[in-house]
């Protein structure tokens, strides 16, 4: 079947679900430790990792067409710029 390679096993899906929950816990835990501006980057990195897992495994981005992948990467790039530009303000207040 053409789409067979796109289907992940229940075990994989369960592992990803577990990873998402663990990463959520890490985010909450990290928020209790005051690391200054590093806190924001930790939260962003964890959130990006979680979003990537959802996109690759649950939304099958790994087997999507070129157009979809390029569109997705554009949105990531755009979002990164938007968030990054806020630091022109936050980092220099």
């Amino acid at each position: 079947m053409e789409h067979a390679s796109h289907i992940f096993s229940y075990k994989t899906l369960g592992l990803v679900l577990g990873a998402l929950l663990v990463l959520t816990g890490v985010t909450v835990g990290a928020s209790y430790i005051d690391l200054g501006w590093v806190n924001v980057w930790i939260a962003l990195v964890i959130a990006s990792a979680k979003a990537s897992l959802v996109l690759v495994v649950f939304m099958h981005m790994n087997s999507a067409g070129k157009g979809v992948v390029v569109s997705f990467l554009s949105t990531v790039f755009f979002l990164a710029i938007m968030i990054g530009f806020i630091f022109w303000d936050v980092a220099f207040r």
């Binding site: 755009f78 710029i81 938007m82 530009f85 022109w88 303000d89 936050v90 980092a91 220099f92 207040r93």
Partner: peptide, 20 residues
């Protein structure tokens, strides 16, 4: 899409942001 904060010069954001 990258110029939004020109609405905020008097908001109290940093001078660096105002310049950029």
């Amino acid at each position: 899409s990258l110029v939004w904060a020109h609405h905020m010069y008097t908001s109290g954001m940093s001078d660096t942001a105002v310049f950029v």
